[in-house]
Amino acid sequence: MIEVKNLVKIYETKKGCVTGVDQVSLTVKKGEVYGIVGYSGAGKSSLIRCLNLLEKPTSGEIHIDGVELTTLSKTELRKARLKIGMIFQHFHLVSAKTVSENIAFALKAAGLPKAKIHDRVTELLDMVGLSDKKDVYPAQLSGGQKQRVGIARALANNPSVLLCDEATSALDPSTTKSILSLLKKINSELGITIVLITHEMEVVKTICDRMAVMQDGKIIEEGDVYEVFANPKQSLTKDFVNSILQFELPERLLEERQGKLIKIYFQGEIAEQGVISDVFQTFKVRGNILHGKIEYIQDIPLGIFIMEITGEQVEMDRAIAYIAARTKNLEVIDDAA
């Protein structure tokens, strides 16, 4: 488990002091995947680098598996860091060493007996799907393969925590998907707690159990991923969610509307029920779906549909009231009637 209490990181610059992390407190449960999302400059990189003391906090506490890192001596901290793996956006591989040598370096640094290093490297290469690349150099690898080496190196000493600093930002969408699948597999099979930072909500949606949104060094919203997507509270969180779930209708579709334009949010099992078809069978209205989308977050459906309902005023009102009662979330966005 990771517990952060009142963490502050202040940088001294020529122009004065800059607060990178501002009184952040959070708890990451053992074995979960926790995402921290924010735009550039939000403080998320500073926060994650404080978790293993690559950045020394100005104040606050960091507890990992019951150990308060900020109180440790240099020797104790080196030992504690063996249980905290980290992967980086730009891989940080040693270009003059082969794939095997890059991974073995972490094992040698930890003092693993030479006789055991070969077997452990072989095991790690198999885990990340690079058994056939053990003797090649980083320059001969694709971006996704380089990140797999980075993951293998981070796992070398059997950490209990894996920190991911924008681990997929330099990768194309297809490769990102494969890396996220690998991380989810590692989390599931090894029980490793994963903390990742990103500016991409798609990453959070795909892999995380819980999440936090950072802005100006502070955590402004936190919760279960599905709940944050379904009911974002802060304007920045809504912007992030909109990048995944929302859409703008072309102006031509908004012209010459004759009925009511409504936006319907379907959450959970209701998204898989025939609410709209029931409306057309029950009320004397017509409907025209202009846009719609269903995303599956943590295997739970979350849908948004925009549609126009036409008919007599009374029937439209009754139909809308019925949909609102079934979905618990409906918004009339234009009422030409």
Rank of each mutant, 00 (worst) to 15 (best):
N288F: 01
D224H: 05
K146G: 01
I197W: 01
A336D: 00
V24K: 13
T175F: 10
A139T: 01
Q215W: 08
G144S: 05
L290H: 10
V241A: 09
Q147H: 05
V28I: 13
K260A: 11
L77S: 06
K108R: 15
I264G: 08
L47D: 04
S95F: 04
I151V: 10
Q281W: 02
K134N: 01
S188E: 13
L196V: 05
F305H: 03
I270R: 04
I323E: 03
S188N: 11
R81D: 02
T98I: 06
I306T: 14
F305A: 06
M127Q: 14
I194H: 01
G292N: 04
Y296D: 00
V275T: 02
T310Q: 01
M127N: 01
Q267A: 11
M316I: 01
S169Q: 12
G311L: 00
K30T: 14
A170W: 03
M201F: 03
E123C: 13
E12R: 15
V225G: 01
I192G: 14
Y39D: 02
I297L: 09
I179M: 08
S277R: 06
F266M: 05
I270L: 02
V67T: 15
D278T: 10
T58I: 08
H92A: 13
G268A: 09
L53E: 05
G66M: 12
H92E: 14
S169C: 09
E248F: 00
V94F: 15
L253Q: 10
T58A: 13
E202G: 13
G303Q: 02
L249G: 14
E221G: 12
L162K: 05
D335F: 00
L51M: 14
T19A: 08
E227T: 12
L163A: 05
A80M: 07
I84G: 07
I289P: 09
E55H: 07
K44Y: 06
F283G: 00
G35A: 13
Y226F: 10
S131A: 15
K328N: 08
G38R: 13
L53F: 14
S73V: 01
S95P: 12
E269R: 13
G311A: 09
K29H: 13
I36M: 10
L69F: 09
V195Q: 01
